[in-house]
């Protein structure tokens, strides 16, 4: 029986030549381009590059970000200047139509609609990014604490999360926004971010718990790795996949929620800084006679939210470890 345990070095000579040839063959196969050191992110990127859904979403996002950053220069007119005020007549319900230099016409008080849309993307980008980052940070903190410590800490955190999740998200955001004495863009960000915290926390906690019982965490413990390193090196990085995906999806939700809060009047009351939700809110009085005033900001919100959703969905597929090769 001990014969079955043969050292690789002591093979019969007849096999030696063949083994070497096989090894050489295997080595050439393994030496393919980009084979060495492919991390999870790199292999995900390789698959994303060929995914048309991802490319479309990414194109929308890139366009949106570029427009937001360059909007002060892209906008033909000052978005706060009432250049077409002369064509506005409240009595006759007249709002400036499209004309030379003003391809989308003016708004209710005679400001250039296109310039307001372009500059308004800044606010939307800012609210979306900050709300997501703050929500992500809070969710990571709570989720890591709950998933790493477990026990009563986990129970406590998760009950708080349950309570927050039991309130409809827009209602919760609305209530948080109303806590502040004066509405501003900052309160919108905070309100939208707070709504996202429990979602991130629960997601991370779930995958942390799954990691806690995993073989590689047990193996790391068997090597005497300290608990802090177990959590931050072995559990957290392996739990982040679903959270990253959720973050891109939350960007879309945050943009919609922020627009909704502005629409409902919880945003910045000063309408000199254009914001899509606020523009939409302002257009509702004239939506019968001038639907274009609502159409453009609403369309922008939808397309940008769609872009983030497409990227989020394709990221989810790409980061799924079951798809890895």
């Amino acid at each position: 029986m001990s014969g079955s345990v043969s050292r690789s070095g002591s093979r019969p000579p007849t096999l030696g030549g063949r083994k070497e040839r096989l090894d050489a063959l295997a080595a050439t196969a393994a030496d393919g381009p980009g084979d060495a050191g492919v991390s999870l992110a790199a292999s995900a990127w390789r698959r994303l590059r060929r995914n048309p859904v991802f490319l479309l979403g990414a194109a929308i996002i890139v366009l949106f970000v570029v427009v937001a950053l360059l909007s002060p220069w892209l906008a033909a007119h000052d978005p706060t200047a009432r250049l077409l005020e002369g064509q506005v007549s409240r009595a006759r319900n007249e709002i400036p139509a499209a004309q030379e230099g003003f391809p989308l016409g003016g708004d209710q008080v005679g400001r250039d609609l296109l310039s307001r849309l372009l500059v308004g993307s800044q606010q939307t980008l800012m609210v979306g990014v900050f709300a997501t980052v703050i929500g992500l940070a809070g969710g990571l903190l709570l989720g890591t604490v709950a998933g790493a410590l477990g026990g009563w800490v986990d129970s406590l955190v998760m009950r708080v999360v349950d309570v927050m999740l039991s309130i409809p998200s827009l209602l919760l955001a609305f209530s948080i926004g109303a806590l502040f004495p004066s509405p501003s863009q900052f309160t919108v960000i905070l309100a939208v971010a707070t709504v996202q915290i429990p979602i991130f926390a629960r997601l991370l906690r779930g995958s942390m718990l799954a990691q806690r019982g995993s073989d590689h965490v047990l193996a790391a413990r068997a090597l005497g790795v300290r608990p802090r390193a177990i959590v931050f090196r072995h559990m957290l990085p392996n739990s982040l996949g679903p959270v990253i995906v959720q973050a891109t999806l939350v960007l879309a939700v945050a943009i919609i929620d922020a627009a909704a809060l502005s629409f409902l009047g919880l945003g910045n009351p000063d309408d000199s800084i254009p914001e899509w939700g606020q523009m939409l809110g302002g257009a509702q009085n004239v939506i019968d006679s001038h639907p274009n005033l609502a159409f453009w900001p609403a369309g922008c919100i939808i397309i940008v939210a769609l872009g983030f959703t497409l990227v989020g969905e394709s990221l989810r597929d790409a980061l799924d470890p079951k798809n890895r090769r």
């Binding site: 991390s39 590689h216 068997a222 005497g224």
Partner: peptide
């Protein structure tokens, strides 16, 4: 653990951290 006593487990793929 790891210094005086070492341990090797059954499934070599799941015993390694996939992201490191």
């Amino acid at each position: 653990r790891g210094r005086d006593l070492g341990m090797v487990f059954q499934d070599p793929l799941s015993s390694l951290n996939p992201v490191i």
